[in-house]
Simulated scan of single mutants.
Amino acid sequence: MKRIDPAQAHALAAIVSGGSFEAAAAALSVTPSAVSQRIRALEVAVGRPVITRSRPLLPTEAGLAIVRFARQFDLLSADLASELEASDDGPRQRITIVVNGDSLHTWVLPALVPVAESLQIEMLREDQEYSLELLRSGAAAAAITSVNAPMPGCSSHALGIMRYIPVCTREFRQTWFRDGATAEQLALAPVIVFDRKDDLQDQYLRSRTRRVLDPPRHYVPAAQEFKDAIRLGMGWGLVSELELGEDPQDLVPLSPGGPVDVRLYWQQWRHGSTALATVGEAVRQAAAVLRRPATGAP
């Protein structure tokens, strides 16, 4: 394989971001023909297709690796520019990370406040089960995930355990679970689910009943509103111990025991930048809250 030309790699990254050769040309201030030539030369260099000629245009496996290279190159270039200029007047470097909603709502955001004094941080919210797709595609440089095995070109660090408790209001429990959270009642009682990717409630149902249940569901895709829906009596749901520790008095557990533990990991590009390393260190330090017993759970 020949050496990868950064200009050709950036042409591919621009196509993936913009969705077309025309959008990439506009972003790069060149003609669509020039973009097409760069892609052809890139495919000759790697000896295989880097993009599917379909609608929408999608990168191949080789193309994904090259997109990540282009974006890592940008991070390293920004590091070099900062070092050479040694000035605070230039534009701040941008770092994009993926964070699950519960972590963002509880412990991640405060950790990034000091880092935000010198960087631009873009946070993409995605469920921890799906966040690696954004890392794999090159859309983000790091992600909080429930997957331990590192992605190609990435490092993986254990953060700790996010514990979730099935809770509801006292009135809801009296109405639906007067005799306990039995399989029969769990099949009937309304449940609050974050979105259609959220499997936490179903994990609890499977572990509790050893059956596949399909109770009535309300989808509330926002962290605060999710808890508000439970507090308003719309249904029961799983809330993290960290959130319950803030104000637990109006929520009660469905029944003794039954928590769902989710192990979280921080994956980031191995060849990132000083800025990415700074963000990663801030997140890993803040995750100490996941490695000690929470208090205030009902």
Rank of each mutant, 00 (worst) to 15 (best):
D5Q: 11
D5W: 12
P6Y: 10
P6G: 07
P6T: 07
A7L: 10
Q8S: 11
Q8H: 14
Q8C: 08
A9I: 00
A9D: 03
A9N: 03
A9Q: 01
A9H: 04
A9Y: 00
A9T: 01
H10Y: 09
L12H: 05
L12R: 07
A13L: 04
A13Q: 06
A14G: 09
I15L: 05
I15M: 03
I15K: 04
I15H: 04
V16T: 03
S17A: 12
S17P: 02
S17T: 11
S17Q: 10
G18I: 00
G18D: 02
G19A: 10
G19P: 04
G19H: 05
S20N: 11
F21A: 01
F21I: 06
F21K: 02
F21E: 01
F21N: 00
F21Q: 05
A23N: 08
A24V: 08
A25R: 03
A25L: 08
A27S: 15
V30G: 03
T31C: 06
P32G: 05
P32E: 03
A34P: 02
V35L: 04
V35I: 13
V35Y: 02
V35N: 05
S36Y: 13
Q37N: 11
Q37T: 08
R38H: 07
R38I: 04
R38E: 00
I39S: 00
I39T: 01
I39K: 00
A41E: 13
L42H: 04
V44P: 01
A45S: 13
A45C: 14
A45L: 12
A45G: 11
G47M: 12
V50K: 04
I51E: 01
I51M: 05
T52M: 15
T52F: 15
T52A: 09
R53L: 13
S54G: 15
S54A: 13
R55L: 11
R55I: 09
R55F: 12
P56R: 14
L57N: 11
L58K: 14
L58W: 11
T60D: 08
E61I: 13
A62G: 10
A62K: 10
A62D: 08
A62N: 09
A65R: 12
A65Q: 13
I66V: 12
R68F: 11
F69C: 01
A70I: 03
A70R: 04
R71F: 06
R71W: 01
Q72N: 07
Q72S: 14
F73H: 15
F73R: 09
F73Y: 07
D74I: 02
D74P: 03
L75H: 07
L75F: 06
L75Y: 05
L76C: 06
L76S: 15
L76M: 13
S77I: 12
S77V: 12
S77A: 14
A78Q: 03
A78R: 00
A78N: 07
L80N: 09
L80P: 02
L80W: 14
